[in-house]
């Protein structure tokens, strides 16, 4: 199974992912309609991408009174059916990450659907902060980076 993996240390804060996401889902460019968001901390020049990580046991699914949100165990995606949504907004309060949200008009719930298995945000992330990768590979890079340090300091090669 593939997941959207984020390496915050690589994010350059360019926000191309936000534009790509909103354009794909709404046909217009608007970072407030993007499912993925970059939070910028300008004092430290740190940029943190956040997006729905498709919880296994999702608060948003549990709190949804109409079944508009449901977990698809085959794709891993927490799916959203706008036809069943009554816009009670309970899901936006339940999500601990702020990753399920209202669009810029405040009239529609928006969340990441992994673009049906071909996420648009990944295509414009030249920095490699976003990758769509097999779940077992998700932390492999990090593991190798820290293992390399150990190799050098302990083994001396």
């Amino acid at each position: 199974m593939k997941v959207l993996s984020i390496d915050i240390s690589k994010c350059t804060g360019c926000r191309a992912c936000e534009y790509a996401c909103s354009f794909k889902h709404t046909g217009a460019f608007n970072r407030w309609d993007s499912r993925i968001s970059i939070s910028q901390f300008l004092e430290d020049f740190v940029f943190i991408p956040t997006v729905c990580t498709q919880c296994e046991d999702a608060y948003c699914v549990n709190v949804c009174p109409t079944g508009a949100l449901s977990k698809n165990y085959e794709t891993g995606v927490v799916e959203f059916d706008p036809n069943k949504c009554i816009l009670c907004k309970q899901c936006t309060m339940a999500c601990p990450w702020g990753s399920i949200k209202l669009n810029h008009m405040g009239r529609e719930i928006i969340k990441c659907d992994l673009c049906g298995g071909d996420p648009e945000c990944v295509k414009v992330c030249h920095a490699g902060a976003l990758e769509f990768t097999e779940v077992e590979d998700m932390v492999m890079d990090k593991r190798f980076r820290s293992a390399t340090k150990l190799k050098e300091s302990v083994m001396g090669v």
């Binding site: 240390s9 350059t12 360019c14 926000r15 191309a16 534009y19 020049f45």
Partner: peptide
């Protein structure tokens, strides 16, 4: 260098932190 920074929608990210 701490990290590279990019302007709006920029894949080049020549900005230096």
């Amino acid at each position: 260098l701490i990290r590279a920074e990019g302007c709006d929608s920029c894949p080049i990210a020549c900005g230096r932190v």
